[in-house]
Design a protein around this nucleic acid. Structure first.
Length: 496
RNA sequence: GACCCGGUAGCUCAGCCGGUAGAGCAUCGGACUUUUAAUCCGCAGGUCGUGGGUUCGAUCCCCACCCGGGUCACCA
């Protein structure tokens, strides 16, 4: 990426040369800091005017020059603190260095804490060290505090540039950093939750010779040495269940799935999926685990400073409704006995688009989405989906037309999908073959027959419950984030 | 994919009825030893997303394209 150097960058390069002329190395190797910014702020007793000496490192984010003195703010990952630089304190050489500093420079600073006339805890700098010269101006806005609220002026606002240059977005907007801290806390909490239940975290292939476990179009790549196509996984499911055959009773994986579909505010081509499987559990057991996992995740996000208010209340137990009765109630007919033409007529009436071209299962799913799913606000488990919608789920005990499956919805969004996993290899083969027929008929999202998976199942697969939770979506739900790009550090974009 | 909105200085934005551009901040120069959107004075900074068209003349009107945002559709 070559571009012309603008006059601001030129000015900084000139300063670099002035530094070199003074024998100052502009890119350091390390700095021994004693405190973080917030750690230092806590050191000055409210009743005293002078405190201990601290060594801090961070980025200059604000600068107010006054001739022979200057005030600056230094920011590190903990927060920001004011610096006071005086010529008589620093000496001529060090003050000359200070005059060659820019906003964005990474510096180390040492000096005693004191309180300014306006009461702000500040470092009176008596030694400065340049750690990294910033040759490209970061788009810092100016901040003021009005009635206790920080107002930022002319900051870094262009959404495209913020996604493309997330490093600049993070450097300039602390609240963006806080959001991703919250995300990290959430996934750690989920790991802790599952680890405490004796789940084993495992890693399964991202590059797969066959893709499956979900209905989606895959990314295809090619392995040169094997001279064969490989698919980026669309789900972890089939490999994790092979591990249950192998004797791991409880496994989970948090990793990226890849789906070759459109990009919009809830879809990124790669996204983070949690799947977990537990032998000898059925979907009712998994429902309880999901409820506890979601509330545990909500609790840690709630505790991250700044996010307490955004996390929705999740009173337990979550509401439970059954798929068929809730759709029937909304539709006014029995979906399981209604004939095909009248179902298609109802779909048209309720605004399901392209109803005539959809396969029967897809039609049912769209109807449910339009009439029931979209109306769910409080967290609700929807139970017992029709068999045709769930090729990897066990038939429901007492009603083989249905499967033992649930999805969790809240605010019209899907948060989890789970079932009593099908462990009958004869039935599984029949379902795979039905999928293969759909695929042969042109359904690009239908899977094929995975013979290796069937082999594993034929060895004897314990009954198990399994759950998938989209981590990005869950995080968006908990933080009130509307666009998935705001929940992913480096979202997929067209190249510049 | 459809529709709507946007792309002007490093950043945030203005630009009337078509007459080849402005502000604030930042930068640069000057003043300033407790400021905090520091203040004051001065200078500089532009391929107006790209390519065509209309016109004596286009940032402005028209067409196409690129990029982004939003809404909808698609996406178990």
């Amino acid at each position: 990426m070559s571009e012309e150097i603008n006059f601001l960058q030129a000015a900084r390069r000139e300063k670099l040369e002035s530094l070199a002329a003074r024998g100052i190395e502009p890119f350091a190797y390390s700095y021994a800091r004693t405190h973080t910014a917030t750690g230092a702020l806590a050191l000055l007793d409210p009743n005293v005017e002078e405190g201990p000496t601290v060594c801090l490192a961070g980025r200059i984010v604000a600068w107010r020059g006054h001739g022979k003195t200057a005030f600056a703010h230094l920011a590190d990952s903990s927060g920001r603190i004011q610096l006071y630089l005086r010529r008589d304190q620093l000496g001529d050489d060090q003050f000359a260095l200070a005059e060659l500093l820019d906003i964005g420079d990474v510096i180390g600073v040492a000096g005693p804490l004191f309180r300014t006339r306006t009461g702000e805890t500040t470092v009176r700098a008596d030694r400065l060290e340049l750690l990294a010269k910033s040759l490209r101006p970061l788009p810092f806005g100016k901040e003021e505090v009005v009635d206790g609220v920080t107002v930022r002026h002319s900051g870094f606002a262009d959404p495209e540039q913020r996604y493309r240059q997330r490093y600049a977005d993070l450097a300039v907007n602390p609240e963006v950093r806080a959001l991703f801290v919250a995300r990290s806390r959430m996934t750690s909490a989920i790991r802790r939750f599952l680890d405490d239940l004796d789940y084993l975290e495992v890693e399964t292939p991202v590059l797969q010779p066959l893709y499956g476990g979900a209905a989606a179009r895959p990314f295809v790549t090619h392995h040169n040495a094997l001279d064969m196509p490989l698919y980026l996984r669309i789900a972890d499911e089939l490999y994790l269940k092979r591990l249950i055959v192998g004797g791991f009773d409880r496994v989970y994986e948090i990793g990226h799935d890849f789906r070759n579909e459109g990009i919009d505010r809830t879809h990124n081509p790669e996204f983070t999926m949690l799947e977990f499987y537990e032998a000898y559990a059925d979907y009712t057991v998994m429902m309880g685990i999901v409820e506890r996992l979601i509330t545990a995740a909500a609790e840690v996000v709630r505790q991250v400073p700044g996010f307490g208010g955004s996390v929705p209340d999740l009173p337990t137990p979550f509401r439970r409704v059954e798929w068929v009765p809730s759709l029937n109630a909304a539709l006014g007919v029995d979906i399981m006995t209604a004939d095909e033409p009248s179902i298609r007529r109802l779909a048209r009436q309720h605004g399901v688009e392209h109803g005539d071209q959809l396969s029967h299962p897809k039609l049912l799913d769209d109807l449910f989405q339009a009439l029931v799913e979209s109306t769910i606000v409080e967290p609700t488990f929807v139970l017992d989906y029709p068999r045709a919608l769930s090729p990897l789920a066990k038939p429901k005990r007492g009603n083989p037309e249905l499967t033992e499956r649930f999805e969790l919805f809240a605010h019209g969004r899907e948060l989890a999908n789970a079932f009593s996993e099908l462990n009958d290899p004869i039935d599984q083969r029949a379902r795979f073959e039905a999928q293969a027929r759909l695929r042969a008929a042109g359904d690009e999202e239908a899977s094929g027959v995975d013979e290796d998976y069937l082999r594993a199942m034929e060895y004897g697969m314990p009954p198990m419950g399994g759950v998938g939770i989209g981590i990005d979506r869950l995080f968006m739900f908990l933080t009130g984030t509307a666009n998935i790009r705001d929940a992913i550090l480096f979202p997929t974009l067209r190249p510049e």
